[in-house]
Amino acid sequence: MAVGINAMPVTFAAHALAVIAAIMVLVWNISYRGGLAWEAENKNLIFNLHPVLMLIGFVILGGEAIISYKSLPLEKPVKKLIHLILHAIALALGIWGICAAFKNHNESGIPNLYSLHSWIGIGVISLYAFQWVYSFVVFFFPGGSSNLRSGLLPWHAILGLFVYILAVGNAALGFLEKLTFLESGAKLDKYGAEAFLVNFTAIVTILFGSLVVLTASAKSPSSIDDADSYSYSAI
């Protein structure tokens, strides 16, 4: 059931938070952590790609994919295509971000997949990929029957939001994990500018994710009184 508000106004605040979160994570990794690189003697620069790609690529673009389908006043086929492409880009950048973390660990002699953040991360990216592939086949090409699409629609919506909420929560967990390492290993000032920047980036990320979920639960701006006007779907 839809929340009794229009999705369009909520998206304005969500877009603003997305821009703020993107700027904050870039400032953190470029100004405070030394920059970004795929090949570098300083392996920390490789790892810096991970939070940038996971936040901007996976969480923000993934959220924008959900928002786009619900809020854009466009024809359904156009919204489906935008929704599909944004999710594909989010998935690709998320995979790249995970590869950056593995590359950093392998070249630095750090074990892989030892933390709760990494376990949840692998689960989230796997579910995201599964969701995208089966949605492409059933809802886009070659496309399932009307009965099949109708039956899978509620599961598509529920699984999509579930995976997205997990992604946002795991992003916050990742910020906490990295900040804890910096404070204990690099002796980062717990009340310094960088610590506050990381914490506030996590807060803005959570707020953005909350608005994405609210948008998915709100009424579509479409004037057509059908099921898609009041539900989140990619059909």
Rank of each mutant, 00 (worst) to 15 (best):
92 A>R: 05
183 E>N: 14
123 G>N: 07
230 Y>I: 15
156 H>C: 13
138 V>L: 15
216 A>N: 08
140 F>H: 07
101 A>L: 14
48 N>D: 09
118 S>W: 05
160 G>N: 12
81 L>D: 03
27 V>F: 02
97 G>H: 05
96 W>C: 14
37 A>H: 06
190 K>H: 07
6 N>V: 03
189 D>S: 15
194 E>G: 07
24 M>Q: 03
131 Q>F: 09
5 I>T: 11
217 S>Q: 15
16 A>L: 15
96 W>P: 00
126 S>W: 01
25 V>H: 00
216 A>M: 07
115 S>T: 11
112 N>F: 03
78 V>C: 05
152 L>S: 12
58 F>C: 08
53 L>V: 07
225 D>M: 09
152 L>N: 13
134 Y>T: 06
31 S>M: 11
130 F>S: 14
172 A>C: 10
107 E>C: 01
232 Y>D: 10
231 S>R: 10
76 K>W: 15
79 K>A: 14
166 L>Q: 07
188 L>V: 02
133 V>P: 06
40 A>I: 00
223 S>M: 13
43 K>D: 00
50 H>E: 00
49 L>C: 10
45 L>H: 08
225 D>W: 04
62 G>C: 03
219 K>N: 15
199 N>A: 01
4 G>R: 12
27 V>N: 05
155 W>E: 06
123 G>Y: 05
49 L>R: 02
187 K>P: 04
3 V>R: 09
84 L>H: 11
3 V>S: 14
71 S>Y: 13
109 G>A: 06
203 I>T: 08
118 S>C: 04
161 L>F: 07
60 I>G: 02
124 V>N: 02
80 K>N: 12
224 I>A: 07
144 G>A: 12
64 E>Q: 14
117 H>P: 05
46 I>W: 02
58 F>L: 15
117 H>T: 01
97 G>S: 06
